[in-house]
Design a protein around this nucleic acid. Structure first.
Lengths: 166, 166
DNA sequence: TCGAAATCGTCAGTGTTACTGATTATCAGT
DNA sequence: ACTGATAATCAGTAACACTGACGATTTCGA
């Protein structure tokens, strides 16, 4: 099997590589790292019938209590129509309930069920596990450092509102 | 305009937030950072009629010389059929040329044109600018540190081959 | 050397996904 | 009460990458 030449590879030539500027670029590294961590998390979630998005919703609901689909969507930057589908899924899994908001009967109060609370705990643990595994490669001292640098980079606490004045 | 209540917000209540475990999660931070940097880059590329993917191809072609669409696709994890479209675009912009490979006339040798080389230089500069801006928030000393940590995290030099044994 | 099997690029069709726009019910302000 | 805005929903659409089939060419086994 000398298919090498078919790949444009002459005898002593080096195998083709991604360009160094690509490999070293911040965007590339961040994307790759993000995708790695996310993929691992989603793999763990799959048996529960959940994706990362669902997990995020569970966590926000757990911390913030009942919220409308609208608010939930705004927080997570998820479209309202997509939100319908996501909450449908969570409801079908009996993790959340839709209750009419007595103060605004157009809206629902989406809230965790008991099962949802339990699942949330498991999901949170999965998240911690995944991160721990992903960070395994780093010396313990660097782990918190990386998180801190990232936090600084995205400047979460600052002005989030960007594109919302059309 | 006291629409506040419509968002489920009682008088003294705190505004709804993303759950802290989400905001602090490595995956979330990485995704957000990646998207931030990438969005900035793509905004700069748009006037040239390019996306980040195209830029990556230009850089690899610049460094590696002419490559087949197949190889190019494998390197960048881009499907062969999608590759057709991307190279079409680059060719339409006169940044690359398709030449039949004399050693394997099934394949093309995709290579930069003169204009492609010039554009590549501009694109590379754009990339550097974007990264510099993104990293502005970090003390100079931390910038290289972050890159190094990310590099370690994704373990680029190690076994890349994962899912390719179907 | 011949023929089967694999590979490169291409294209048409498919499946998925998120969104646009319209709809119903409800709320706020005049 | 009437007008305009908002919450959730649904049907249709647009964008997208992919599946599968194809012609041209190469490689390998016999």
């Amino acid at each position: 099997m000398v298919t090498k030449r078919a790949q444009g590879l002459a005898p002593g030539e080096s195998p083709p590589r991604l360009a160094e500027p690509v490999r070293a670029s911040l965007g590339f590294l961040l994307s790759k790292a993000a995708q790695q961590v996310t993929a691992r998390f989603e793999a763990r979630l799959a048996p529960l019938g959940l994706e990362a998005r669902h997990a995020g919703l569970l966590m926000t609901l757990s911390e913030q209590g009942a919220l409308s689909q609208q608010v939930l969507g705004t927080l997570h930057r998820i479209d309202r129509t997509t939100m319908v589908m996501l909450v449908d899924t969570l409801e079908r899994l009996a993790l959340v309930e839709r209750q009419r908001d007595p103060d605004d009967r157009r809206a629902y109060r989406v809230q965790l069920t008991r099962k949802g609370t339990t699942t949330h705990a498991r999901v949170l643990q999965l998240l911690r596990d995944c991160e721990a595994e992903a960070l395994e490669r780093l010396p313990a001292a660097d782990r918190q450092r990386l998180r801190q640098l990232l936090h600084q980079l995205v400047a979460l606490d600052e002005s989030d509102p960007k594109e919302d004045a059309p």
